[in-house]
């Protein structure tokens, strides 16, 4: 991450004869590099800076999204969002989803990556099958799983448990079951992706490390603890960062699988921002929520990076 902020390499000192003075070259390069970076600056200003400033501004007003006038209301929106049951519910489920998927995917993806790193018949097929769900649209997967979880006896899961004599269950109609179902589908869809990420780091560990460890008499478990795990720490950092930020931003899967229901049980923060801000004309309140969301995501990223830096320092 830090590497992108590093200054560019100094140009090598060249000795060929007639060319512009150093100063002229610098000036020309300055103009040229402005021209080349201009498009990305425009993208930043139009798609990030202005909307971000507007979100801050709206969050301090009673703006409804379409009228021309908006009254300044101070921090009122920031207090009312904590009294809105649908928003609180969205916050709760978003946190449950984030923690649930992060823990479950990490616990499953690391062993899966270790297995996929061994040689066995059909390994490429297994790898592709686990990875494939993350290639296709999450929204479509959510819709397909909606049919799989169908409450009648004809749903896939209900007919499977029916073979064992169980009664059909309305998976998505009961709040807790619906929440668990959403998390399960997300884990199903995300584990392979993160396993491939871990796999890439595993394959970068030189085999000499393991040879040296086994010569020193380290058991398999010790090798995992003292060779694999420390060298996997950067991968764990990256994977968890992606899982946490991805979890907080989740929208597609709950929306297509349950529509946020039953009630507000599987509503997400993003759904709240969209529905309150665009459909229901509560742009001020929804903007306050989106600002809180931005600050929370930023803090988590910073905290996670600091924590992982400490972890890496401890392990190495």
């Amino acid at each position: 991450m830090g590497s992108t902020l590093a200054p560019p390499r100094p140009a090598p000192h060249l000795q060929s004869a007639p060319r512009p003075t150093r100063l002229q070259r610098l000036r020309r390069r300055g103009v040229e590099s402005y021209l080349f970076t201009l498009p990305v600056i425009v993208v930043f200003v139009v798609l990030f800076a202005i909307p971000l400033a507007q979100s801050f501004y709206y969050s301090l007003t009673d703006f409804n999204g379409y009228s021309t006038e908006a009254n300044f209301v101070g921090f009122e929106n920031y207090t009312t969002i904590w009294r809105d049951t649908s928003m609180l519910s969205a916050l709760g489920f978003t946190l449950v989803f984030t923690v649930g998927t992060t823990v479950a995917i990490t616990v499953l993806a690391i062993p899966l990556a270790l297995v996929l790193n061994r040689k066995f018949f059909g390994r490429n097929l297994v790898r592709s099958v686990f990875f494939f769900p993350s290639v296709v649209s999450v929204a479509i997967l959510g819709l397909v799983w909606g049919f799989i979880f169908a409450p009648l006896g004809t749903g896939v899961i209900n007919s499977i448990i029916g073979w064992f004599g169980a009664q059909p269950i309305a998976w998505l109609a009961e709040p807790d079951l619906a929440r668990i179902s959403v998390v399960v589908v997300a884990v199903w869809g995300g584990t392979g992706w993160h396993a491939v990420l871990y796999l890439a780091y595993l394959q970068a560990i030189p085999s000499e490390f393991y040879e040296a460890a086994s010569i020193d008499g380290a058991s398999r478990r010790q090798q995992f603890r003292y060779v694999t795990l420390p060298l996997l720490t950067p991968a764990i950092t990256v994977s968890q960062l992606l899982l946490i930020t991805g979890g907080l931003k989740v929208y597609d899967l709950p929306y297509t699988l349950t529509g946020g229901g039953p009630g507000f049980a599987t509503r997400t923060l993003t759904q709240s921002i969209i529905e309150n801000g665009i459909a229901q004309g509560e742009a001020g309140k929804a903007s306050a929520l989106s600002v809180v969301f931005f600050v929370a995501v930023g803090l988590i990223i910073v905290a996670q990076l600091a924590l992982s830096r400490r972890m890496e320092a401890r392990f190495s």
Binding site: F48, P51, S55
Partner: peptide
């Protein structure tokens, strides 16, 4: 910046 924060503007 998450996309959600800039969505309404």
């Amino acid at each position: 910046v998450p996309g959600q924060t800039t969505l309404i503007p």
